[in-house]
Amino acid sequence: MMERIGGKVIKFGHYAVVGLALVVTVSARSVSAAEQPFYAGKTIRIIAGFAAGGTIDLRARLIARYLPKWIPGNPTIIVQNMTGAGGQIAANYVFSVATPDGLTMLHSPTGPVMNTFLEPDSVKYDVRRISVLWVQEDSWLTAFNAKATKIKKAEDMLRTAGKLRVGGSGASSPRSLRPKLALELFGADHTWVTGYRGSADLLVALERGEIHLFEEPMAGYKPIIQPREKDGTIVVLWQTGILTLEETFKRSEFIPHIPTLDEVLPKEKKAGPAWEAWKALVVPQAFQGMVSLPAGMLPDRIAILTHALEKMTQDPPYREEHQKVLGQPADALFGESADRVVKTAIKRLFEDYQGGVRYLRDLAKK
């Protein structure tokens, strides 16, 4: 190949031209790779520690459908149900086994935090180091089999005959401990049946008569509990409420007609270590629904996912389906605000409710 430059004919070798072409091609590919978002072509897993059909599973699947379009690169998101030990198997996997690369998230209730206090030997991570991206407060309600127990109102708990069977998941799960502790506070005779994988299993057990009561998150009220309230199968006697920093219990604004346990429990029973234990179990209701990542995540990926979750939560189609499926608005806290709520609760449990935590550890062994 020849070219006239400055009045002279210059001859270029064949290999020089080929080499130049290769440099241009490689450079173009490098620029393209640099511009490619990290999540392009990737698959994110949301690990749900409870069985399909329950509240955690339903919300995880909503997130999996609506979140991808808000993440640069539009990754695929799948839900993997990893049941067992009240969600602790899933938490141990995400926080101590999964690579902290932003491709594995945990959607859970409070168990992964509370087990640090209630069953520390089962926890394989430092809960103070996890990254919390998103939280929703959630007041849990206790559902009774109205036909089998003949219980219609909270006062009936003080004179109930026979032994009530309380259903739960893992023995140290707050979902299992709270209804059991409530019956102890009332002085009602009861036995404990644990090992159920989630809301769907507990509901079947209730309807079959295997158990008489179980606890359900507020998000499950409309799809799971309310239809059975209307046909007289289930009666709801109380909700946990949200424990404020001033140690008052507030009703959830989404189920305001249901009183808190604090309102229906006789005053003389609201004292001593059992009542302190109840407060310790209600502290984490401020972050009952939680999306979190393992420690060691790169800050830019935390920022990407936090921003995407916030945009998703503001998206009208997501909000509409969330309300339809779970019976509550999609409002949530994100990023630093969400992380602060969880870390404040952890601090309170370490410093303010040690006596209650000890009581709960003993209760889990009964």
Rank of each mutant, 00 (worst) to 15 (best):
E3A: 13
E3N: 11
G7Y: 00
V9A: 04
I10C: 07
K11L: 13
F12S: 04
F12K: 05
G13F: 04
V17P: 10
V18C: 01
L20S: 08
L20I: 06
L20Q: 02
A21P: 07
L22N: 06
V23S: 02
T25F: 15
S30T: 08
V31A: 11
A33Q: 14
A34W: 09
E35L: 15
E35N: 14
Y39G: 09
T43I: 10
I63H: 05
I63L: 14
R65N: 15
P68A: 14
P68C: 11
I71L: 04
P72E: 14
G73S: 08
T76L: 12
V79N: 05
Q80I: 09
Q80Y: 03
T83G: 05
T83H: 09
T83M: 08
G86H: 04
G86A: 04
Y93E: 14
L103A: 04
T104M: 00
T104Y: 03
P109S: 15
T110C: 09
T110V: 15
G111I: 09
E119T: 10
V123R: 07
D126Q: 14
V127M: 15
R129Q: 13
R129K: 15
I130A: 09
V132S: 13
V135L: 05
V135D: 11
E137C: 10
E137H: 12
W140A: 06
W140D: 00
F144H: 12
N145Y: 00
K147V: 14
A148E: 02
I151H: 04
I151V: 07
K153H: 01
E155L: 11
G162E: 10
K163V: 14
K163I: 14
L164A: 05
G170K: 07
S172Y: 15
K180F: 05
E184H: 05
F186V: 12
D189W: 02
T191L: 13
T194I: 08
G195W: 03
Y196S: 09
G198S: 13
A200H: 08
V204P: 03
V204F: 05
G209K: 10
I211T: 07
F214N: 03
E216F: 15
E216W: 10
K222S: 13
I224W: 00
P227D: 09
E229K: 15
D231E: 11
L237G: 13
Q239E: 13
Q239T: 08
T240R: 01
I242T: 06
I242F: 07
T244W: 09
L245K: 15
K250C: 11
R251M: 06
E253S: 12
F254N: 09
P256V: 10
L261N: 03
L261T: 11
E268P: 06
K269E: 06
K269T: 02
K269L: 03
E276A: 15
E276C: 11
V282M: 01
Q285R: 01
F287P: 01
L293A: 00
L293C: 02
R301C: 11
R301G: 07
H307W: 11
K311H: 11
M312W: 09
T313F: 07
P316V: 06
E321P: 01
H322Y: 02
K324G: 05
L326F: 03
G327Y: 06
Q328R: 12
P329Y: 03
D331L: 02
D339F: 05
R340Y: 09
V341M: 05
V341N: 02
K343G: 00
I346A: 04
R348V: 03
V357G: 10
L360F: 04
A364L: 01
K365W: 03
K365V: 10
